[in-house]
Design a binder for these strands. Structure first.
Lengths: 95, 95
DNA sequence: TAAATATTTAGACATTCGTTTAAATATTTA
DNA sequence: TAAATATTTAAACGAATGTCTAAATATTTA
């Protein structure tokens, strides 16, 4: 919980998540999107992984990153209480 | 956007938000819930207000805090892209 | 096996963050 | 108007965060 919110807190990490909506990518391709060193991006990817927001799969010398449902569900679940408070339509999550 | 995510990032601030689901409260009542100085809580309330997650209304010598829809809608909107990616049911927000 | 490529780990450093105590402001009550 | 109550503002400080460069690890290619 704590680490997931922390992971979402940084703007670069949020941009990485949005970028991955377009599909899985390796670390190098992700890093190309940002004017920031590769080690910095690597660190951000690590935090997103810790927050269960992305998955990492090693494919040869590359590491492919993709969005991970579980972190998003955690946050989504936390927000449900407020969603109800404001009378948004009940979400009825399909798992 | 940035300030709203930042506001949500801290565990004490998230607890304050959850506490306010139970209804509006003045600063003193909120502070009582936490083993932390009043100035700290005051600071957290300020950040939540900046993030449009709570509203502050002065009532005599008290300040009444309550949940603010707009900050939650901002975050909810940001998550919609992922919600769709994971094929959650479409939220159809009622404004 | 040596060189090249992909990515991470380690260490350093400035900035931001959360907390505290003390002081200031605003409102109500005696 | 003076004292009490509610809350914030200010200043200080240690801890956490994000970034960088340099070095290490792993894999592929020549």
């Amino acid at each position: 919980m704590e680490i997931t919110f922390k992971a979402i807190n940084d703007p670069t990490r949020r941009e990485i998540l949005v970028f991955l909506i377009g599909g899985a990518q390796n670390a190098g391709e992700i890093a190309k999107q940002f004017s920031m060193s590769k080690p910095s991006i690597s660190h951000h990817l690590d935090l997103l992984k810790q927050g269960n927001l992305i998955l990492a799969e090693k494919k040869g010398q590359y590491i492919i990153y993709s969005l991970n449902r579980s972190g998003f569900e955690l946050v989504h679940g936390w927000f449900q209480g407020f969603t109800q408070y404001f009378e948004f339509p009940k979400p009825k999550i399909r798992l």
